[in-house]
Simulated scan of single mutants.
Amino acid sequence: MTQRYLILLPGDEDAWEALTREQRDTVYARHDEFGTKLRANGHTVLGGAELTHSRETKLVRADAEGNVVVSDGPFAETTEQLTGYYDVETDNLDDLLSLVAIVAGPDHASAGMGAVEVRRVPTAEDREP
Results as ranks from 00 to 15, higher is better:
residue 54 S to R: 15
residue 119 R to G: 00
residue 2 T to I: 06
residue 93 L to E: 09
residue 90 T to P: 02
residue 100 V to M: 02
residue 107 D to F: 00
residue 115 A to H: 08
residue 14 D to E: 13
residue 122 P to Y: 12
residue 100 V to C: 10
residue 20 T to D: 07
residue 120 R to C: 04
residue 40 A to K: 13
residue 101 A to S: 14
residue 34 F to M: 05
residue 41 N to G: 08
residue 31 H to Y: 14
residue 82 L to N: 01
residue 30 R to G: 05
residue 69 V to L: 14
residue 44 T to F: 03
residue 41 N to D: 10
residue 46 L to Q: 10
residue 110 S to C: 00
residue 59 L to I: 15
residue 40 A to Y: 04
residue 23 Q to H: 07
residue 14 D to I: 02
residue 37 K to T: 07
residue 81 Q to R: 14
residue 96 L to F: 09
residue 24 R to Y: 05
residue 98 S to T: 13
residue 33 E to F: 05
residue 121 V to I: 15
residue 110 S to E: 07
residue 107 D to Q: 02
residue 90 T to H: 06
residue 31 H to V: 06
residue 88 V to K: 00
residue 57 T to K: 07
residue 46 L to C: 08
residue 42 G to C: 09
residue 91 D to A: 14
residue 16 W to Q: 07
residue 62 A to K: 15
residue 59 L to E: 11
residue 74 P to E: 08
residue 81 Q to T: 12
residue 61 R to Y: 12
residue 13 E to V: 03
residue 24 R to S: 04
residue 93 L to Q: 07
residue 60 V to W: 06
residue 115 A to R: 06
residue 110 S to I: 01
residue 20 T to I: 07
residue 1 M to A: 06
residue 105 G to Y: 01
residue 108 H to A: 08
residue 121 V to D: 04
residue 35 G to K: 04
residue 129 P to N: 10
residue 27 V to R: 07
residue 47 G to T: 00
residue 115 A to N: 05
residue 46 L to V: 04
residue 25 D to G: 12
residue 61 R to D: 11
residue 70 V to K: 14
residue 20 T to E: 09
residue 4 R to G: 02
residue 127 R to Q: 12
residue 100 V to N: 01
residue 33 E to M: 08
residue 103 V to P: 02
residue 64 A to L: 15
residue 56 E to Q: 12
residue 13 E to C: 11
residue 76 A to F: 12
residue 59 L to G: 14
residue 91 D to W: 10
residue 125 E to C: 05
residue 88 V to D: 01
residue 67 N to T: 12
residue 96 L to T: 00
residue 33 E to N: 07
residue 42 G to Q: 08
residue 4 R to I: 03
residue 111 A to I: 04
residue 27 V to Q: 04
residue 96 L to W: 04
residue 108 H to T: 03
residue 82 L to D: 01
residue 117 E to Y: 05
residue 88 V to C: 07
residue 104 A to R: 01
residue 53 H to L: 08
residue 115 A to F: 05
residue 88 V to Q: 02
residue 64 A to F: 14
residue 111 A to D: 06
residue 76 A to M: 11
residue 94 D to W: 05
residue 94 D to I: 03
residue 90 T to D: 04
residue 23 Q to N: 08
residue 9 L to I: 13
residue 91 D to C: 06
residue 81 Q to I: 05
residue 78 T to P: 08
residue 68 V to G: 10
residue 99 L to Q: 02
residue 89 E to N: 11
residue 27 V to E: 04
residue 8 L to S: 03
